[in-house]
Amino acid sequence: MFAAILRTQWKWTRGPALLGFILGFAIPLLSLFSLRSTGIGFAAANVVREMQQYGLLYAVLAGASGLTCAMLSWGHDHRGRHVYALSLPVTRTRYAAMRLGAGAIFLLVPALGVFLGAVIGVATAAIPTGLHAYPFSLTMRFVLASFVAYAIISAISASSTKASAYILGGIGAVVATLFLLGIAGVGQDAVSWIGQALFAEHGILSVFTGGWMLIDV
């Protein structure tokens, strides 16, 4: 049963998953290539600064991979108002777990690209003394970040249209309120509290922040 779900989901996800693989493979190589092309050499400070500039790309790719994978995994059920899924003789939790599990497996494809790109890039680069390469840690972080994005969007996509509308409407209302408060220059405490709750050390989106370093001290 899971194999059949896996096959159908692969059909829907494979294009973006393979694109994610290529991009994931390219980012670490590009970061090291750009270091060489700048002509500033592999001085430790230059390397760390250059690596930091590419950190955002990993986070964006992880977020985009999770979002795309979730939307493609649930989109077909959502468009059919979940009638097919609901008419199948399996418990709803089991069905949701199978869909979620299949999507999670395909999320590993871009992560594999990141890992291979990082390992190959690091193997071909001369890393200055005192610095270390972290291809495995970077990949694990990429996996975690893409899973967080995947889980959030799945929770929305797997719901009914009405529930999805409520969730998205709620998020939209919060963002709009924060934006207006920011313009008006009031409620800064609330804005910073929400920012902390989401992005601070224990916030649910904290994995996207901070340094995504392939090479660091």
Binding site: M1, A3, A4, I5, R7, T8, K11, W12, H76, G80, Y84, L88, P89, V90
Partner: peptide, 16 residues
């Protein structure tokens, strides 16, 4: 799911 072929739809459905 309309994106599946006839064969894929049958293969998916029968497993349940």
């Amino acid at each position: 799911y309309p994106s599946l072929t006839v064969r894929e739809a049958i293969d998916l459905h029968r497993t349940f």
